[in-house]
């Protein structure tokens, strides 16, 4: 930049511009942030869904494990003893999870 009067004026102008920009940005973000205070969505945070969610995930995981076990058995990776033992164990766990799920939904 050249020295002298015009450059200084220009510099002041850009400073002003930056100041306006920053205030504008600030107001924008703040407005966005406080907006939920004025909208009565009534969307309260759902309470104890965690237990349910955990059980659902557990259930799906167990179903998948049973499927995988069957695949492994079909492929011949698992001996029939191991297969039977694991299968019974997994089924037992599934029924436990299902029982818990039932008791929650009946509450």
């Amino acid at each position: 930049m050249l020295s002298g009067q015009p450059a200084e004026v220009e510099e002041k102008k850009t400073d002003m511009f930056a100041a306006i920009m920053i205030v504008l940005t600030f107001v924008l973000v703040l407005a966005f942030a406080v907006q939920p205070l004025f909208v009565s969505k009534g969307a309260a945070i759902a309470s104890d869904k965690v237990k349910l969610e955990t059980l659902e995930i557990r259930k799906l995981s167990l179903y998948e494990q049973i499927k995988e076990l069957e695949l492994e058995f079909d492929m011949g990776n698992v001996s029939s003893d191991d297969y039977q033992r694991n299968r019974i164990e997994l089924k037992r766990e599934v029924s436990m999870v299902l029982e818990q799920l039932n008791s929650i939904s009946s509450e």
Binding site: V29, L30, F32, A33, V34, Q35, P36, L37, A43, A44, I45
Partner: peptide, 14 residues
């Protein structure tokens, strides 16, 4: 108070 959380979500996005 849920409202604090809603605003926090927004400020975090900010």
């Amino acid at each position: 108070d849920d409202r604090f959380f809603f605003v926090a979500q927004r400020t975090s996005l900010g």
